[in-house]
């Protein structure tokens, strides 16, 4: 039986100046599922991912991650969740002074794993994302698609339970975007829960996965087969 890995319960998020982003949204994601997070620009896709990645705190409501209530989490407990929930950023967030290989091993190095122990794993991952031969390349010398692949390899090296991706195809061409999605799909088949935020409506059509749709501070679920929309699920 699949467990709930992400659970939002009546969560609201307001920004200073009475700007409401979400209002009492509730949803649950089961372990090993793949979802798109869609909605117009400014609908709050990034904010929702940030709430899951604990980069923001809700104004109201409860969030449960990996079975724990994280609504009032202590700062010192955040690294534990971030080691289980990886994030692929639209702007890659690579360290320019490190090589591709060094960037990929970074999350493990931060957990105290010696470089030599994680080197082989990182080489395999870079090969997997199609960057064989770019191990010693520095990010500024690479294309957007290559940088995004490094970011994906870095995100999965810790074998996370959840992978969040914020517009991962936003800075790459359509063909590269689809290839990146195949990588996410492959990860999902290995058991990782994937949530991909995108404003590109073609991706949910190409990949038949359910969508969490954000609109006017509310969330709804769009199932792929029938295009059926479920509100307040």
């Amino acid at each position: 039986m699949q467990k709930e890995i992400i659970q939002f319960d009546q969560v609201s998020l307001d920004f200073p100046g009475n700007i409401t982003v979400f209002e009492n949204i509730s949803f649950r994601l089961l372990e090993g599922t793949f979802h798109f997070l869609t909605g117009a620009s400014g609908s709050g896709k990034s904010s929702l991912l940030n709430l899951i990645h604990l980069s923001m705190r809700p104004t109201k409501g409860h969030i449960r991650l990996l079975g724990y209530d994280v609504s009032a989490i202590k700062r010192s407990e955040i690294p534990f969740f971030r080691s289980q929930i990886s994030f692929v950023f639209q702007d890659f967030r690579l360290l320019d002074h490190l090589t591709a290989l060094e960037n990929v091993v970074l999350p493990l190095r931060l957990q105290g794993v010696p470089f030599q122990k994680c080197r082989l794993q990182a080489l395999e991952l870079l090969k997997w994302v199609g960057l064989e031969g770019f191990y010693e390349a520095y990010p500024p010398t690479l294309s957007g698609g290559q940088k995004q692949r490094i970011a994906i390899a870095r995100a999965v090296i810790t074998q996370p339970k959840v992978l969040l991706a914020d517009e991962p195809t936003g800075n790459v061409d359509d063909q590269t975007g689809v290839k990146l999605l195949y990588l996410f799909e492959e990860l999902n088949k290995n058991g990782t829960t994937v949530l991909v935020a995108t404003h590109n409506q073609l991706l949910p059509q190409e990949f038949s996965y359910p969508q969490l749709y954000l609109d006017r501070h509310k969330i709804s679920l769009i199932l792929p087969a029938e295009g059926e929309t479920l509100n307040g699920f």
Partner: peptide, 15 residues
């Protein structure tokens, strides 16, 4: 910026 990235990758303040 680097500190932010390290933090997002799971680095604790102690590290």
């Amino acid at each position: 910026n680097i500190i932010d990235i390290l933090s997002l990758l799971g680095a604790s303040d102690a590290i």
